[in-house]
Nucleic acid binder design. Structure first.
Length: 435
DNA sequence: ACAATGGTCC
DNA sequence: ACTCGGACCATTGTA
């Protein structure tokens, strides 16, 4: 099989240069890196989390009272069953347009949002849910998990269908970042005294990968020219000059680009954008007219899976699709979407793993015969986190700038695709500051 | 102990 | 009728 898998072997004539290594070997090499990251852990300022918890508990308590008052009785807001009972039986809110679950009407946030203008109880319920989630999943558990050095230690895994890395006990890959309190929570992830955090994250790595795998000329040109890819897409599907793209058009285009990675259906896009299926189908039609490479890629992947029952990443990681040909139309389409996504997500994971392997080598090597302070610092720089397209390193404060350049350079050069890879780096006293 | 529901991240 | 890719985890409620 060799280092460049059969499916993608034509890409080496298109400027793709990869290290001569298989997916299996990448997994094996990253394994000790992951074990080291687990051992080192990440420092937590528990007082920040506890302070925030107190603040949110107070607010939650008030929201609870308010919801109960508006409902006319006390009930468990955390129970979707009881909540549905209150909303649709007691308060007689219309459930016609809402999704159903096996047990009844869905009370998911997206569904409740549709009722926002119908009753004042919806808003406090949504806020209650948001805050209760943060407290129960992050603010309460994390401080209890710190060791004597105030550090928490996750467990990384590689047993996923696409080749991505997982994090569990605790999961450090779903720490909030959005919303009012996301950055607040990330402020609790700190560098040890005298250190800084350096975070590098790949910019649109999956879109760059699909542009390359699909040899999509339009998208390759956009990335080569350093364009704002979402604005570029907007310009194409709305047929307006790049400098005339509105923020709303860009938002739509961003969702379309996102949809490409997931094998978008008109239904899925319509739901994501809150538009009609017809309108969504029109966007997709426009998109595929311009992006013939992407269209062909989707077709080729589906044809391959129908024939071989598996997909393959750039480094040859296979995901098997044994249930591909079934009579259930929805099931088949779901499998098709997974098949389109698997090589992209999987290749991104491989590139990140390779970057981590390279980075840890460079952090440990002693580059100069006459040791300068920054070089000794290099030995004490340590990988501490990885979140799918991001790597976080804890480094001595005085070498932060040098380490930031090293992280960026390593991430960008670990493979050569037919489009440039771009990594953005940030330095901070805590995780929030690195953005 | 387990399924269902909902929610956080990339 | 159609419910976009990949994970982990808290809570409720039943077995």
């Amino acid at each position: 099989m060799g280092w460049l898998s059969v499916m993608w072997s034509h890409l080496k004539e298109k400027g793709v240069v990869l290290p001569k290594i298989t997916a299996e070997e990448i997994s094996k090499k990253v394994e000790p890196v992951l074990r080291e990251m687990e051992r080192v852990g990440v420092m937590i300022d528990a007082s920040i989390l506890e302070g925030l918890e107190d603040k949110l508990e107070t607010r939650i308590s008030k929201l609870e009272t308010k919801v109960h008052r508006l409902a006319g009785r006390e009930f468990n807001i955390n129970s979707p069953l009881q909540l549905a009972e209150v909303l649709f039986r007691d308060l007689r809110l219309p459930s016609t347009d809402l999704k159903r679950t096996k047990t009844g009407v869905s009370t998911a946030a997206g569904e409740l949002l549709k009722l926002k203008s119908r009753h004042p109880i919806i808003e406090p319920i949504l806020e209650y849910r948001e805050l209760a989630k943060l407290v129960s999943t992050y603010l309460k558990p994390l401080p209890r998990m710190v060791d004597a050095d105030s550090r928490i230690h996750t467990t990384y895994g590689q047993e996923t269908s696409t080749g991505r890395i997982t994090s569990a006990n605790p999961n450090l890959q779903n720490i909030p970042i959005k919303g009012e309190y996301g950055p607040e929570i990330r402020r609790a992830f700190v560098a040890a005294p005298g250190c800084k955090l350096v975070a590098g994250d790949y910019s649109q790595i999956e879109l760059r990968i699909v542009a390359c795998l699909a040899q999509d000329k339009t998208m390759m040109a956009a990335f080569a020219g350093g364009e704002d890819i979402h604005a570029q897409t907007a310009s194409e599907i709305f047929n307006v000059p790049l400098n005339r793209v509105t923020s709303d058009q860009r938002r739509v285009a961003k969702t379309v680009n996102f949809g490409v990675l997931y094998g978008m259906s008109a239904y899925g896009l319509a739901q994501a954008l809150g538009i009609s299926r017809e309108q969504a189908a029109d966007y997709i039609k426009r998109y595929f007219e311009i992006h013939e490479g992407i269209k062909k890629y989707c077709h080729d992947v589906i044809a391959k899976v129908a024939k071989d029952k598996y997909t393959e990443t750039l480094f040859g990681f296979r995901r098997s699709f044994e249930n591909f040909n079934r009579y259930n139309h929805n099931l088949v389409e779901a499998e098709e979407r997974m098949a389109i996504n698997a090589p992209v997500q999987g290749t991104a994971a491989e590139i990140l793993k390779l970057a981590m392997v390279e980075l840890i080598k460079k952090l440990k090597e002693v580059p100069h015969p006459n040791p300068l302070p920054a070089d000794r610092a290099r030995e004490s720089a340590r990988l501490i986190l990885t979140v799918h397209d991001e790597i976080v390193v804890e480094v001595p404060a005085r070498s932060a700038e040098e380490m930031a350049r090293l992280v960026k350079e390593t991430m960008e050069s670990v493979v050569k695709l037919c489009v440039p890879l771009k990594a953005e780096v940030g330095i901070g006293r805590n995780w929030a500051e690195t953005k």
